[in-house]
Design a binder for these strands. Sequence first.
DNA 1: TCAATAGTGTCTTTCAGACACTATAAA
DNA 2: TTTATAGTGTCTGAAAGACACTATTGA
Lengths: 245, 245
Amino acid sequence: MKPITSEKEFLKNYNIHDFDVPLTSVDMSIFSIIDDELQVLLLKRNDYPAKGKWALPGGFIDKQQDSNLEDTAKRKLLAKTGVSTPYLEQVSTFGSKQRDPRGWSVTIVYMALIAADDIKLSTDDSSDEIKWQPVYQLSNKPALAFDHNEIFNHCYERLKSKVQYTSLPVNLLPEEFTLTELQTTFEIILDMPIEKKSFRRRILDAQILEETGNLRTGNNRPAKLYKANKLGKDHFFQRSIEGPR
Amino acid sequence: MKPITSEKEFLKNYNIHDFDVPLTSVDMSIFSIIDDELQVLLLKRNDYPAKGKWALPGGFIDKQQDSNLEDTAKRKLLAKTGVSTPYLEQVSTFGSKQRDPRGWSVTIVYMALIAADDIKLSTDDSSDEIKWQPVYQLSNKPALAFDHNEIFNHCYERLKSKVQYTSLPVNLLPEEFTLTELQTTFEIILDMPIEKKSFRRRILDAQILEETGNLRTGNNRPAKLYKANKLGKDHFFQRSIEGPR
DNA sequence: TCAATAGTGTCTTTCAGACACTATAAA
DNA sequence: TTTATAGTGTCTGAAAGACACTATTGA
């Protein structure tokens, strides 16, 4: 074999199957607030390995369809929930010899935040059951497929941590919402009461919301409706919410 | 072909080469403070693709040697720098069709912080040149191999961001150091002066350091030497350093 | 008018920035 | 005694928590 002297020539002779690469997939924790609870989407696996076990949604990269990792995550999310423009954040990548019985494997993990009213659940042939699971029932109890309990916990910790110093929860609400609804969303995720005045001052001073001019009415004083502006979906505060003293 | 009815049978018939998986690697930004500058380690590529270009250290997962992703990163770091117990943090994963001319590829990116006095640089056959590059010369200027400029920038942003609310810089110093040396390290990374009293109050109140009892002497008042305790390597503050008003 | 929720005024607390001050070494 | 750097005292300011207060609706 003669020596290679150009990049073009190198690539002509290159074959990925000469290399012993790990299996690579994308998995995700899809969060939503349903029945005033933070819930995560689970699928029951229809095939081996881990057949019959509940798992986080995910799957393999489609080298034709997907032009990058986020495409893979978005494609899976759309297939299961019908949501096409989620808040999507890469959380971490898990890779080891033992995490999948098929051998050395790597999974790139995303979390998605979606508003409950956008969701139309559907399954495909990789699973016939799909459900929302309250996160407090998942933190310790039932064993998900592979290392998905660990993966989920990592996502949940990331979410709780970022809710302390960002405005992420606006992504879990419909387009229009009241300040009380937003506060409740924060409180559900942090599992902690927040002082009303502090919360409103913090959010309003950050100028990440704008009034829509509409009101939410009920059997009491109507509340102003707001929507997130550009910044609102991703604002970082200088200080964390501290909680009760 | 008869249907598969057990996990064991499934795994017997499973062959990873039936699947079209992407090429997977690990890359890293190794930071150190050298000559009072934040610098990052670069290697000149000895082989195609991108032969002759400077690149971040990295390489493929060795499915025999490495039992997880961190092992791969640690193995590469040890080979180049001789450092075996770094501060090592997974930053992000880049994956796309175009980022490598060999086709769809994924790289898991780590950043490492190491103390200058621990380092013994060495190359292997994948490169014959290795160097420290000041980060301010890298942020915009010279084109690294593949998407390594983008990868580096991501690491650098992560580092600067975490230095505002953690004690990470202790990992860039030798075991013993003065408060002024620690402050200088923060200032170099943030590229911003920090008020002395605020800094010392913040660090000391967090109880992440302990006095070693030794003193750093010179042509002036000797300074107390400190070392990080368990918390010191990874402490998170409730509030960020804000900088001059 | 009452119940319920929206929304505000204002005090305290915490921790960062500013900056002038004192302390201790070598030359 | 001077110069250089280590280290402190104490004021101001920004933003969070506490909590009592007022506002506005339907029943």
